[in-house]
Amino acid sequence: MNRGSSEEFHTYTDKVIEQFRKPQNMGRIENPDGVGTVGNPVCGDMLRLFIKVKNGIIEDIKVETFGCVAAIATSSMTTQMAMGKTIEEAKTITRKMVADALDGLPPHKMHCSNLAAEALQKAIEDYERRAKGDKPANAQEP
């Protein structure tokens, strides 16, 4: 069993806790232009990210997250970093940039709880696929 008031809590930065307490852009978008779903069976975090794109700019972004404090904080941070960016700009957003924007994550959380940037890239791929007229990928329910 893993306990409350543990060192775990204290290894999160203030920014992580702040994002966890008041996460931004959480939820889903009806009729999105792109959807990216990622999940990690080892640690179990799972998230689905939605984008709405207009004139090549991400004009709305939302994310649904099942996971730990780090998963929720990185989800929220990723959406804030991508909001209002062009698709090309958003493509450059990486896990490391998200972690850095949160003043870092505990080492064991770097991989499985920092999936939002990956979900963003998948949502962009989905958007580009749809723009080309292919059928949407990743849009199914989990």
Binding site: N2, R3, G44, I72
Partner: peptide, 22 residues
């Protein structure tokens, strides 16, 4: 997920445990 519940509860002054992998 349990860890996020645990941390939220901890911030409000309640100590519990979770068996969550996270």
């Amino acid at each position: 997920e349990g860890e996020s519940m645990l941390v939220q509860l901890d911030m409000e002054g309640f100590a519990v445990s979770t068996g969550s992998a996270c």
